[in-house]
């Protein structure tokens, strides 16, 4: 009498991921004003930072033409961080409201469900990063080339996915939207404790030490290609490797969180 008792095929899993990602985007597309803070924050950050610290580009050893060119990639990654955090905040709300139970009742691997949850974060990061990118161009930052642009948005989506995994882990643990500041702070720190404001050689000693071990440093340097210097393979692979490494660790943590719900 049951029609759907067979196990899922690979394409069935992919359809689940796509369907969940689409639902995640409703938050941006259907709630008027909901995306404004996530877009406004990195844009204000970019405009504010470049008008306040603009003179820093005159320091000897500063590699970019001007400060705003140097920080546009930082603003884009801030947007990615906010979008990733928003994925976790929305999950926490879904947990509070009981929707998440419905999702857990789906007979699909928990990893498939997780992929659906975090991939909406990746798509969502495009909105703030495109706005920041456009604001940068409007301020007179030069176009980083087609390859540089594509690479920048690919890395933005990658970082957002990683931070969505991080925020998801927190959401599954705390099960309340009150954990939102914790989710947002993680990405904020990760993006700023890098050569965000100045080339690595100009950083304070302790900041330099943190930046070297912070994987987001390599992502940022990857995004910066085209804005500062040409796009090269030697600048690209560390960024991709950093995303991959973060994704493995953070997705594993999130997957563990998924498996442990209900224990």
């Amino acid at each position: 009498m049951s029609t759907a008792v067979t196990a899922l095929t690979a394409s069935g899993r992919l359809r689940i991921v796509v369907a969940l990602a689409r639902r995640g985007l409703n938050e941006v597309l259907r709630v008027p004003g909901a995306s404004i803070p996530g877009v406004l924050a990195p844009t204000i950050f970019l405009l504010g930072i470049s008008s306040v610290f603009g003179a820093a580009a005159k320091l000897p050893g500063f590699t970019a033409d001007d400060f705003k060119t140097f920080v546009v990639p930082v603003g884009m990654l801030q947007g990615a961080a906010f979008a990733g955090a928003a994925t976790g905040v929305n999950l926490a709300r879904d947990i509070e409201r009981g929707w998440f139970d419905r999702l857990l009742l789906v007979p699909a691997p928990r990893l498939t469900l997780l992929a659906g949850l975090v991939s909406s974060g990746a798509l969502r990061s495009l909105l703030p990063s495109v706005v920041v990118f456009a604001a940068g161009l409007a301020l007179g930052v030069h176009f980083p080339g087609v390859l540089g642009t594509l690479l920048a948005f690919l890395l933005v989506m990658g970082l957002s996915t990683c931070l969505a995994c991080y925020a998801t882990t927190l959401a599954l643990h705390f099960r309340t939207q009150q954990a939102a500041p914790l989710m947002q702070m993680g990405g904020f720190i990760a993006v700023l404790f890098t050569p965000a404001y100045a080339p690595a050689d100009l950083l304070a000693g302790w900041m330099h030490a943190i930046a070297v071990v912070n994987p987001v440093t390599y992502v940022l340097q990857g995004v910066r290609q085209g804005f500062v210097g040409p796009v090269t393979w030697s600048g690209t692979w560390p960024a991709l490797a950093a995303i991959a490494a973060m994704l493995v660790v953070l997705a594993a943590l999130a997957a563990r969180g998924m498996r442990q719900t209900g224990r």
């Binding site: 610290f53 320091l59 720190i189 700023l192 050569p195 100009l202 304070a204 900041m207």
Partner: peptide, 13 residues
């Protein structure tokens, strides 16, 4: 955090 980021990044200013 903002203080730390600013100081760490722009200490040479």
């Amino acid at each position: 955090l903002f203080l730390a980021a600013n100081v760490g990044g722009l200490t040479r200013s």
